[in-house]
């Protein structure tokens, strides 16, 4: 009999690493699938900031696949994911994370993938009770059902707490060699990782996407409010990860580089946004998101100057450049701290 074939949803965290290993050890041919929503936490976007340069630059999903010796298919779902994020049927978690809809969507995509590639079942690293929104006893069948995967979805780490799936009934995997983990306690997973000799895995508690981050989520909500419409493009997602975001007026916000790495990164967007750079001293590069008149631009220049080396000078010289190429040099007084309003910080 030829080997059963499974595709495993690889997030790059410990749970999917273990679930895959457990299944492979039962003789199943496993390949990995990783979905890129645009919000995934990536070492490289951290690397935008110079101070983070010492961190290892690695994509954890690729690392997991390489550790296990399996193929990894990375799928770009940025466009399709917009509807998941903007209209989640099951709502949001603590922040802008639509975890349950996200899981359903990803398993649904995996189901399509196994149909196209003649695979037998899908595995995930889900554990009952691990996460308050998507990994509860009640949500497990919801994911199976609404994704269309039904009993082709196996969760090897908590399978013993759930009804037997097709993979168990067909004998592709032995149920008694699967696990019955539950709850938020991660000790069993850590012990299993140790047993397998996995040491360098990504932080077990680490979230897999920026949408679970409170600061990121509030910037996203602010972006929609500022534009009066709930939509986004890839550039928006990226820019929300970078710089100080300051909205002194409802019609525009500033994205101010915090150090050289970010300034350089923002430089790449200079043709699509109005920008401000310091001339008479060193300082940040600022992009303006929104529509500004001359008075707005002057205020933005004064705020930028406040974060420059010349913040204590009487005046500093800045250059502003609009997207139509119109460039202006002006002398402005850096905005005093006392006039920087706390609520401007997004």
């Amino acid at each position: 009999m030829s080997k059963a074939k499974a595709v495993s949803l690889i997030s790059g965290g410990l749970d999917s690493l273990l679930a895959t290993k457990v299944t492979m050890d039962q003789g199943v041919h496993v390949e990995g699938i990783n979905f890129f929503t645009g919000f995934c936490v990536e070492g490289h976007t951290h690397a935008i900031r110079k101070k983070d340069k010492a961190r290892p630059k690695r994509n954890n999903a690729l690392w997991v696949a390489e550790t296990l010796g399996i193929k990894l298919h990375i799928i770009d779902i940025v466009e399709e994911y917009k509807d998941v994020l903007l209209n989640p049927k099951h709502g949001y978690g603590a922040n802008m994370n639509p975890c349950l809809d996200c899981k359903i969507f990803m398993v649904h995509k995996a189901q399509q993938w196994i149909e196209e590639n003649n695979f037998d079942f899908i595995i995930t690293g889900e554990v009952i009770g691990q996460r308050p929104m998507s990994q509860r006893k009640e949500t497990m069948p919801v994911i199976s059902r609404e994704s269309g995967a039904d009993d082709r979805l196996l969760r090897p780490l908590c399978a013993q707490n759930l009804p037997a799936t097709l993979a168990e009934r067909e004998g592709w995997v032995k149920r008694d060699e699967l696990y019955g983990f539950s709850g938020r306690n991660r000790k069993p997973q850590m012990a299993l990782a140790k047993e397998f000799g996995f040491t360098d895995y990504a932080s077990p508690a680490g979230g897999c996407c920026f949408l679970t981050d409170e600061n990121y989520s509030s910037k996203l909500v602010d972006l929609w409010k500022g534009r009066g419409v709930r939509e986004y493009e890839m550039d928006d997602i990226m820019l929300l990860k970078v710089g100080r975001h300051i909205r002194p007026n409802p019609n525009f916000k500033l994205i101010i580089g915090r150090e050289d790495g970010e300034n350089k990164f923002l430089q790449g967007y200079k043709n699509s946004y109005t920008s401000i750079k310091m001339i008479s001293c060193s300082g940040p590069l600022t992009l303006i998101d929104g529509v500004t008149n001359d008075a707005d631009l002057e205020l933005a220049a004064r705020i930028t100057a406040r974060f420059s080396q010349g913040k204590n000078e009487e005046t500093v010289t800045v250059e502003t450049k609009r997207t139509n190429g119109e460039t202006k040099t002006m002398d402005v007084k850096p905005l005093p701290v006392s006039e920087m309003q706390q609520e401007w910080y997004v």
């Binding site: 490289h44 630059k57 690695r58 390489e66 399996i70 990894l72």
Partner: peptide, 17 residues
């Protein structure tokens, strides 16, 4: 590419596949 992360990730993807 302009993202230096590609120096690590593309070779990793190639090794895997």
């Amino acid at each position: 590419c302009t993202d230096p992360g590609a120096l690590h990730d593309i070779p990793a993807w190639c090794r895997i596949n």
